[in-house]
Design a binder for these strands. Structure first.
Length: 491
RNA sequence: GGUCGGUUGGCCGAGUGGCUAGGCAGCGGUCUGCAAAACCGUGUACGGCGGUUCGAAUCCGCCACUGACCUCCA
């Protein structure tokens, strides 16, 4: 059942035949969201990319343990000069407890993921719930000699590590370049080198979230949680580590170094990175202030959006591009996806009622093979999708009586569509009305009110009263004023 | 400045030496009371300039434009 697949490994910069550490089983760790703000399209891309990978690996027979963390501690505010905890900063603005902020955005994230039909990971650990494990990692790294304590904080000694190990390989950086890049701005910092990164940071008074440790009351370094949690749930070595491309440096580079320093060996076999979403050719990101939240997409409530886009439209839109390519957002592209998705789902719904014949004039097996081969080639969902649309053409053609298929081919077609569209792509039927529910409802009622107005103008009181009576019965409140009629839904 | 990537038809987006990607839009047709849907047909796209080759969107070089990362930014 398990077929050979190729995966692009960021570490080697090429596609490699995937070989699991344990036959038939697979461990995958993906960097999840930092829950200090509403989830946006970028979060969706990463989540959908690895959801696709998770679903595909399961579909071809792997037993997968998928770990995706929630980062709820230790990240800095982009525009804060003093290294204030990102979550603490937001908490002050909202006048909420830090954990309240974390909970709020975690819930929002989960809600959006559910709407996008992103399957929950096997384990979703929180950084704040693994402080003990992180402290243990710091101890191990100190013991191995690749870290030093300075003024209550603990830093990773990058230059010492790089002298004996590869550092910069994942992100294609040379240690000498990095040194020359940072040397200039280094002064009287508590770090020995500008390259060094914190493993444990002593909390300043403005930090609300802090924990006791052997070194100080503080919080864990920004890269440590992934090392600690991946090790805890997947072991010292595991198959796949994923995340957004923007995390390769320094985050994943630091993780690699930490793991090696702590456990004496490389933790990750395959590094996978999804590319960014762009908006007018520029990266969409929280720090740039151009991120459109998922909620805004679903409601259409954003100046850049011409209309609301359903979660499935967003999902389909992403699947139409390869995960390693940038994907440029536009209303036009999204609307094209909306229509394409509709066509695909309509065809899917039609399969059961397709007429059958004694012979087939199409090759379903070949089509299925093509779809799976495309997915096996580094998750090439756009290619798989293009074959699926060949299937759509077949379905419609059979439905119109222009093409014949046998009962067994119809079954094969049904199985293909269910496996690929429903199980792997994670697309599900959703009515148009659901997407822009209120918007559509408003237009419909406005239309009825207009008809009623016309009836009144013609003194067709029977019709006008009927419309008002029926609408009232449904639950609407209709009021005629001298400025015209108004309505509202009483529910 | 350093490192790595991208530039494909109206839009999005695959494709890495010869063989139609696909979706959306457009155009023509079939069907239809009209429309929609569906089906059939239709598009001589590969940033520029050179080079390699029998043959290049695909390989090489140069140039242009553009993006990401490089900052105690995740």
């Amino acid at each position: 059942m398990i077929q050979e697949i190729q995966i692009y490994n960021t570490l080697t910069r090429q596609k490699e035949v995937f070989e699991p550490l344990v036959p038939g089983k697979l461990g995958m760790y993906v960097c999840g969201p930092t829950v200090y703000g509403p989830p946006h399209l970028g979060h969706a891309r990463s989540a959908i990319t690895f959801d696709l990978i998770f679903r595909f690996l399961k579909a071809i027979g792997y037993k997968v343990r998928y770990v995706r963390n929630i980062t709820d501690v230790g990240h800095l505010v982009a525009d804060a000069d003093e290294g204030e905890d990102k979550i603490a900063k937001q908490a002050k603005l909202d006048e909420l407890e830090p954990m309240e902020v974390v909970q709020k955005y975690t819930n929002l994230f989960h809600h959006s993921m559910e709407l996008l039909n992103v399957a929950p990971p096997s384990i979703e650990p929180r950084a704040s719930g693994h402080i003990v494990e992180q402290i243990e990692e710091v101890k191990k790294i100190l013991k191995s000699g690749y870290a030093y304590e300075s003024n209550g904080s603990v830093y990773f000694d990058v230059e010492k590590f790089a002298a004996e190990n590869e550092y910069g390989k994942l992100s294609g950086r040379k240690i000498e370049d990095l040194i020359s890049n940072t040397r200039t701005l280094d002064g009287q910092s508590e770090k020995r080198s500008g390259l060094d990164f914190a493993l444990w940071k002593k909390a300043q008074p403005e930090h609300i979230m802090h924990w006791p440790s052997p070194w100080s009351e503080g919080f864990p370094g920004w890269h440590l949680e992934c090392t600690a949690m991946s090790c805890k749930y997947l072991g010292e070595t595991f198959d796949i580590h994923g995340g957004g491309m923007d995390l390769t440096f320094p985050h994943h580079e630091a993780e690699m170094a930490q793991s090696k320093a702590s456990h004496g060996k490389d933790a990750v076999h395959y590094w996978m990175h999804n590319n960014m979403i762009t908006l007018n050719g520029q990266k969409m990101g929280k720090s740039l202030g151009n991120a459109i939240s998922l909620e805004e997409f679903f409601s259409g409530n954003h100046p850049l959006l011409e209309k609301a886009y359903s979660p499935m439209t967003i999902r389909f839109f992403m699947l139409q591009a390869h995960y390693r390519s940038t994907l440029d957002f536009s209303n036009e592209a999204l609307q094209a996806s909306e229509k394409g998705l509709e066509r695909l789902m309509k065809a899917l719904a039609k399969i059961d009622s397709l007429p059958v014949s004694d012979s087939s004039s199409v090759k379903i097996e070949e089509l299925a093979q093509n779809c799976f081969s495309a997915m096996a080639d580094d998750m090439n969902s756009p290619i798989a999708m293009s074959y699926l649309f060949e299937g759509v053409k077949i379905i419609n053609s059979v439905s119109d009586g222009n093409t014949n298929i046998t009962p067994s081919d119809r079954d094969a077609l049904k199985q293909l569509f269910h496996t690929l569209v429903v199980d792997i792509f994670g697309l599900k039927a959703e009515s148009q009305a659901e997407a822009g529910n209120t918007e559509v409802l408003t237009e419909v009622v406005d239309l009825l009110m207009k008809l009623r107005l016309e009836a009144k103008a013609n003194k067709d009181w029977a019709t006008s009263d009927k419309i008002r009576k029926e609408l009232t019965a449904i639950g609407f409140d209709i009021k005629d004023t001298k400025d015209g009629a108004s309505w509202e839904l009483k529910k």
